[in-house]
Amino acid sequence: MNLHFTKNDQKSMFLPRKVVDSIPFSSKDLPQIYNRFSVKPDSMEGQDMKQTLNECENKGIEGEEKYCATSLESMVDFVTTKLGKKVKAISTEVNAKESTPLQKYKVELAKKRGGDKVVVCHKQIYPYAVFYCHETVATRVYAVSVVGVDGMKVNVVAVCHIDTAKWNPKHLAFQVLKVKPGSVPVCHFLPEDHVVWVQY
């Protein structure tokens, strides 16, 4: 199996909370949002923005607390409300300048981080930084050092979902692994631009 750790070319940055609070963030306001950022509705960017808003407005899975953070301040507020003030953010670090497959790799070190309650924030496609954050329980986070035979080293975050009983049976993980919801833990590496918050 080859591991691909991709570099995200979209470099949208966080705006201050004061600024984003003055910008509509709702699918019903899409025409106004498109106009504000000079985006054509039928363009790829326009469709990505619509998808991000839909994902933020959709109901999460049962037992999951979700929130779309549109500023760093709002992300920290959500995280500390769920996990308390003693938290640490960790993410995957890719040193390569571009997407590189890691072939014939070995795991050098895997170290558990925090407890079984974490907040994972996934970067969305939007003109400014938006993260889809969700609190997960029965989840374990590991910091993993992976080394390829060519010497390339990547420090990645691995997330293991211990209880998948309430997941959608059509979830890609079940199709790939050929297992049923709740039968086995599901683990995956996180891309570089996603953040995991753990307690310490």
Rank of each mutant, 00 (worst) to 15 (best):
T80N: 01
K111I: 10
D21W: 01
G84Y: 00
P41D: 09
T100A: 06
E135F: 15
F78R: 05
E45Q: 09
C160G: 06
V156P: 09
E45P: 01
D116V: 08
E65P: 08
G151V: 06
S183R: 07
S38C: 10
N155P: 11
I23K: 02
E65N: 15
K40R: 06
K66Y: 12
A89N: 10
Q10D: 11
N54S: 11
W197H: 03
Y142A: 10
D116H: 10
I90D: 00
V176H: 02
V156G: 11
K86D: 08
M49N: 05
S145D: 15
T70F: 04
P101S: 04
V130F: 04
Y142F: 14
S145F: 05
C133I: 04
T92E: 09
E108T: 14
P101A: 03
W167C: 10
L15G: 00
K7D: 06
G60F: 10
V176L: 02
C56V: 05
F14W: 01
L177P: 05
Q175M: 00
Y126M: 00
I125V: 05
K59Y: 15
C187Y: 13
R17T: 08
P127Q: 03
A138Q: 14
A69K: 04
T164R: 11
C56A: 03
V39N: 02
C133H: 03
Y128F: 04
V196Q: 00
K40I: 05
V156D: 10
P101W: 00
S26N: 07
S74K: 02
L172C: 07
P185N: 10
T164A: 14
K66R: 08
V144E: 13
K123V: 04
L83G: 00
K153Y: 10
V119Y: 04
V156I: 09
F131P: 03
G46M: 15
K40V: 04
G114S: 02
G63N: 11
E98V: 06
V154L: 13
E108C: 08
S91I: 13
P31K: 07
K11Y: 05
G46A: 06
Q10A: 12
E93A: 11
D48A: 05
K106V: 06
Y132T: 08
V94T: 15
H194I: 13
P41I: 13
V147Q: 15
V184R: 07
C121Y: 02
Q51H: 03
C56H: 02
F25T: 11
N168P: 09
D48Q: 14
S38T: 12
S183Q: 13
L53P: 01
E64A: 09
A89H: 02
S26V: 08
S74C: 12
P169H: 14
N2C: 05
K97T: 07
Y67L: 05
V176G: 00
E64T: 15
T52G: 02
G115F: 02
D163F: 10
T70K: 06
K82F: 12
A69E: 00
G148R: 13
K117N: 01
A158H: 13
V147Y: 08
M44S: 07
Q47K: 00
Y132W: 07
F189H: 08
P24L: 04
C121M: 01
Q47F: 03
E45L: 03
V137Y: 12
V179Q: 06
E73V: 04
